[in-house]
Design a protein around this nucleic acid. Structure first.
Lengths: 246, 246
DNA sequence: CGTGCCTTTGAAGCCTATCAACGGTCGTGG
DNA sequence: CCACGACCGTTGATAGGCTTCAAAGGCACG
């Protein structure tokens, strides 16, 4: 199984342009310490995984269709988004390298998934993956931890959407991104989506996001060296901005 | 309501009794069709469950403390709420009879739980419950379905918080409550929280909630016969109000 | 029966959405 | 390699919705 992955790794390394140094190994698990639930799950599922590559703006699945696979993102970026009545778009999840996603356990997808960067991922047939997970207590536990972690994240986002002002949401978003990519010691983080994407993720509109970023730069919290990279200059100012209640 | 709670308590105190449609049964699963995941999980965990009764405003657990138990609510109502920086409160979850809650799989609770009505519930020691779930494939699957369902609900709420105006959120909230208590054929639904609670659940403030309810009544969508009961008079008007984009 | 708490309604101010325009950047095609 | 075009980001002005502050009535509970 590892050989299989190794063979694929050669293929994987080519199309990946942006995020993620090595598409094969879970970047999160490259850290020291006991194996994380995510690593346990990945190691077990890997033999079932089929490698898929997506180009930017390519769809992976769409809302309403049956959930045939679970996914794990190796490199690039994927956004999972739904459309509300009224045509307004909402990004339910921003998937970064090392994340599982599409872990649904019902007939129809609740949202669509689209690559926002050229991406390489593993697709696990859901029926086989579920059967495997259900037969192994350690795996079952690992999956539960991953799923409960997702629930925690969603509820944390709910709290931020409900309680924070625009500036606070943007500051919070930057800290979330920095934390999720903490393994890269650099203080400059790559944002895998456009301002529109950030807006749809935070329940704002692009202009407001832009204004908030400008304000954070004015306060000295961040710098904007390139279009889609943001440098965290003064974290305490950022934390302070996040505290902005509504 | 009080009688109902009393009955539930009496039956719950002898959990070893019986299969079949007793008051012990999950009210949701009293409906026809194959056994739901929630029912499977409840039947399996029931032997581990300890009955607990809470009075209104009594705390069940608080943010930060270790997650020692999983819970299932038999009657009454519970709110799971967190506090953001700035002191603003947010209700992460409104627990209705038949719901599991507190299904965390990490060291510390992410939020506090408090009864908003006199409540009767089952507490399952987490360590034993996890061990049981992990050793049985069917149970593992049932738990996964429950957890994934929770994730779906959270993402649906995220979409509404991000995309709907105040009127839309309140209309959406009423429909959610009506749907979750659909087994009661009556069109009058009991709201187990005050206007403050609705506000904290929807990311609004109580005055705005009150205004939205008044507006919905003006439009003929609902009636407000009592303080905490709302009658759905014209569902299409409600759906229309929910469509209010932002 | 009194006392809080909950709910409702009003008025004013702030924040965010919307509409609009401009400059810059990236990707594409010549 | 260069030039073009489309997309993205920023900034400004305006309007609208929500929050905040304030006060009064009503219901429930002790």
């Amino acid at each position: 199984m590892l050989e299989h992955s190794g063979v694929q790794a050669g293929c994987l390394s080519r199309p990946s342009i942006g995020l993620g140094p090595t598409p094969l190994a879970d970047p999160v698990d490259a850290m020291a310490g006991p194996k994380s639930a995510s690593a346990v799950l990945l190691d077990a599922l890997r033999p079932l995984g089929a490698v898929r590559t997506l180009r930017r703006r390519q769809d992976l699945f769409t809302e309403g269709e049956p959930a045939a696979d679970w996914y794990w993102l190796g490199s690039g970026a994927v956004q999972v988004c739904a459309v509300a009545e009224g045509g307004r778009r909402h990004i339910a999840e921003l998937v970064l390298p090392g994340d599982f996603f599409g872990l649904e356990d019902c007939d129809a997808r609740g949202a669509s998934a689209e690559a926002t960067r050229n991406a390489v991922l593993l697709a696990f047939p859901r029926a086989r993956a579920e059967a495997l997970v259900d037969t192994d207590a350690a795996l079952s536990r690992a999956f539960r931890q991953v799923a409960c972690g997702r629930l925690h994240e969603a509820q944390a986002r709910l709290l931020r959407l409900g309680c924070l002002t625009a500036l606070g949401r943007v500051a919070s978003f930057l800290m979330e991104m920095a934390e999720r990519r903490q393994r890269h010691h650099a203080e400059t983080i790559e944002i895998p989506v456009t301002r529109d994407g950030i807006a749809d993720y935070l329940g704002l509109n692009p202009e407001t996001v832009s204004r908030a970023l400008t304000e954070l730069r004015r306060r000295g919290a961040i710098a904007l060296p390139a279009r889609q990279s943001i440098a965290l200059a003064n974290r305490s100012v950022l934390i302070d901005a996040r505290g902005t209640g509504r």
